[in-house]
C-alpha cells in the first residue's frame, strides 16, 4: 500500500495544517515507511488472537462522584493566546 499525495492533503486538512509541496512529498514518503512497517504484522497468523484495544492490564478504574476544586479563571485562561472577559477568544468559526 502506498499513500498518495492527495491523502496527505486530506489528513493535513483534517488537522487544519498547511504544507509546501516539498513537505507533502516528504510526509508521503514517511507515511509509506510507517505503513510498510506496520504491514509486517500481516505476515503473522492472528486468527487465534483476541483483538485488544489496550496494552494496559487495568480494568474498571473508577473515581467516586465527588466534586473537587477547579482551577481559577485566571489559571484557566493563563495560556490563552487571546481572551475576552472570562472567555477564550478565537477567530470566528461560523457565520
Amino acid at each position: 500500500m502506498s499513500v498518495p499525495l492527495e491523502e496527505v492533503d486530506r489528513i493535513a486538512g483534517l488537522a487544519k495544517l498547511q504544507f509546501s509541496a516539498d513537505e507533502k512529498s516528504k510526509f508521503a514518503a514517511q507515511f509509506n515507511q510507517i505503513i510498510q512497517y506496520i504491514e509486517k504484522l500481516a505476515e503473522l497468523d492472528l486468527t487465534q488472537v483476541e483483538p485488544m484495544s489496550q496494552v494496559g492490564v487495568g480494568i474498571n478504574v473508577f473515581r467516586d462522584d465527588c466534586v473537587q476544586p477547579s482551577l481559577t479563571v485566571e489559571q484557566v485562561l493563563a495560556n490563552a493566546p487571546a481572551r475576552k472577559l472570562d472567555f477564550f477568544s478565537v477567530p470566528k468559526v461560523i457565520g
Binding site: K84, L85, F87, F88, S89, V90, P91, I94, G95
Partner: peptide, 13 residues
C-alpha cells in the same frame, strides 16, 4: 457567536 459582547471577527469559548 451571537451574544452582544462577541465582536464580528471572533468566537468566545
Amino acid at each position: 457567536h451571537a451574544e452582544s459582547y462577541v465582536s464580528g471577527d471572533e468566537t468566545l469559548v
